[in-house]
Design a protein around this nucleic acid. Structure first.
Lengths: 362, 362
DNA sequence: CTGTGAATTGACAGCGCTGTCATATTTGTT
DNA sequence: AACAAATATGACAGCGCTGTCAATTCACAG
């Protein structure tokens, strides 16, 4: 068989050629036997499989990618792995994309556009065949690279004003607005807002909150309280404690997510504050524990698994039809789930409309 | 410059050659300018950087890996992404390995040895330079592949009886045993055990629990209750509800992790059961919310970030010193944190029996 | 002006695999 | 029996980059 493969025990790295030699066939036949078994005769297939097993051959993916100009990889960009939201979303992506024969390359950008840019460069360098990204705000260079790559790009979780490709999202600003109105409609006026780090999605929800408050002549920004930490149950407790300490416990608390909400609720119990009588609490995302918390936690249910599933399916479709540049926004919406933690305050005084511009400040 | 690069607008994929042509230098110089800028004169570097930017060049990593026989990638295997434990662990790995110039390829095996085998094959195919794996039980083929690969291998989270390479862990059986003794020492006798899916680590802790119970002539297995689901707060609530329904609420409950514990605690509140008076509850892992729960949750603190950090640092060291085959077990231990949820039942009778030595510390 | 060594730059040959097309080999058809 | 069609296998080139080593340039001492 052609040029004898050299290296004696070079690297313990068995190559296709060596397998071919062992099976007394050509390299290309081994390649075929592995990728398209039905194209090779039973006899050779057995010989080849035997040699593969015996030698412990593992194909070199770099070589394969280079030769075939196909990476079978899809780039996934998330801000952090340390958040159930994205775990669920990733899970959904896995579920659709792996069975379809794609490999996922997951990178976290740690909430930084600069890291995102680096990650995009890396992923494109790997010649990923598509890219699914959380978020819509990128550096100019990131946008340029993505546009030039001519691969399917999906931006998720936020509505894009200028989508690069497909955009599958929920309207975070509107969700923040609606959730706030939900509280306002139930008679709450002094409404606080709790958040952890001020990432894009948090800021959009906050903007919605502020807008709703402003419309009633209330100052939202003033009542927002944050610490630059991942939003955890412990942080919720801490923020609540801090509110209490400063005697700024509001009538209702809109938390950036259910973790903060649950933490706040637990701290309330500790402080002897009743939920919802003393403080109503509204979360976001409707995480698994919201419904079973005690009192059960009102929340804004989002469909992040569907976000993932839909993003993945769309990518698959675009990859098949080779129509990468579809620009379109799909809004998956959300749903406010009223539970015990936000029972109505006053006997429905929502028609009082104009509202009192009473500032929430003590 | 040499052989004119062909393709007109072939794939919008700019190659090194094209950059080289644009900058009027040789390809190898461009390669150097990008990888070792200090080896190239100021003048050329500027020209090259300009061309790179202008053309939007992104290096083809497959080609680079093939040519250099270095992947700069490290394979990471976890059973699931949907568990904070592993998120924290991954975070730690990222923190050490990325700054060192390595790329992480994270694969989840979904708690299946078969999937793990496939994943190992994939990762070795990518010629990862090291492998960090959660768990110690693998298929024979997986073990063989890992042994043959001659790369640093680290198994984590469980003590390996036959480590492939390095083993960084805590003794899960011992932890389960000690935690159970902790409850027994506080006077609890009817102790239940709650778990979700029966993964390796859960089973080891359960084994420790059963052993401790058996030593006192109590039947542990009988009191274990599980459902094959990821262990979540909601599942904890569900299991607790089910226990209550069947009138099998024990004196104390050892939960496989803090999620189940918190869920159980919340359900207790709902059912009007007092913690710890009616049921004591002990969790595992000391997740972020344990200390701030109300009542605060006793738990067995594990050091999964350190697991990650240590694993990553060791890999780095092995990669540098090229001493891949070190076989060794490092036991990081654990610590039982007694909080409100397991106040002593009887007036301190723990010294009654000198008890079982061995704190978790190595 | 020449020699020396350091600093730059380039030529060349693959890395291990797959796409393409050519070459057997077998089977079926008239 | 002769040929077409289908099937199975192989030869070859090259994917885009980097390791190696040679060639060139330059500064400076002798």
């Amino acid at each position: 068989m052609k040029k004898t493969r050299s290296k004696p025990a070079d690297r313990a790295r068995v190559t296709l050629d060596e397998v071919a030699a062992a099976a007394r066939v050509s390299a290309i036949t081994v390649s075929r036997a592995l990728r398209h078994p039905q194209m090779v005769s039973e006899e050779l297939r057995r010989r080849i499989d035997g040699a593969v097993l015996r030698l412990g051959y593992v194909p070199n993916i770099a070589a394969s990618r280079l030769a075939s100009a196909r990476s079978h990889a899809i780039g996934i960009l998330v801000p952090t792995l340390y958040n159930v939201i994205f775990s669920e979303y990733l899970q959904a992506l896995h579920e659709v994309l792996l069975p379809a024969g794609y490999q996922l390359v997951v990178v976290n950008s740690r909430y930084s556009q600069e890291e995102e840019e680096k990650a995009v460069r890396t992923l494109l360098g790997q010649r990923v065949e598509a890219m699914i990204i959380v978020g819509v705000n990128h550096t100019p260079l990131t946008r340029r690279m993505l546009n030039r790559a001519r691969i399917p790009v999906v931006e998720t979780f936020q509505i894009a004003h200028q989508p690069i490709g497909l955009n599958i999202a929920l309207d975070q600003v509107q969700a923040g607005y609606d959730a706030t109105c939900f509280l306002l409609d139930r008679g709450y006026r002094r409404i606080g807002f709790l958040l952890g780090q001020r990432d894009e999605r948090a800021l959009e929800r906050l903007a919605g909150f502020s807008k709703a408050m402003a419309e009633r002549g209330l100052d939202g920004e003033q009542l927002a309280m944050s610490l630059p930490c991942p939003s955890t149950i412990a942080l919720g407790a801490q923020l609540m404690a801090s509110l209490h300490e400063r005697k700024r416990v509001p009538e209702a608390l809109f938390c950036i997510d259910d973790n903060l909400a649950l933490g706040a609720m637990q701290e309330c119990r500790r402080l002897g504050l009743k939920v919802p009588e003393d403080v109503a609490i509204l979360g976001f995302h409707d995480l698994e524990f919201a419904a079973c918390a005690s009192p059960s936690l009102s929340s804004v249910a989002t469909r992040r698994q569907e976000l993932g599933t839909l993003a993945a399916r769309s990518v698959l479709e675009m990859l098949e039809t080779r129509a990468p540049l579809r620009r379109k926004t799909v809004n998956l919406g959300y749903e406010i789930r009223a539970r015990e933690s936000t029972a109505s305050r006053a006997p429905e005084r929502r028609q009082a409309k104009g509202g009192h511009p009473r500032r929430g400040e003590p």
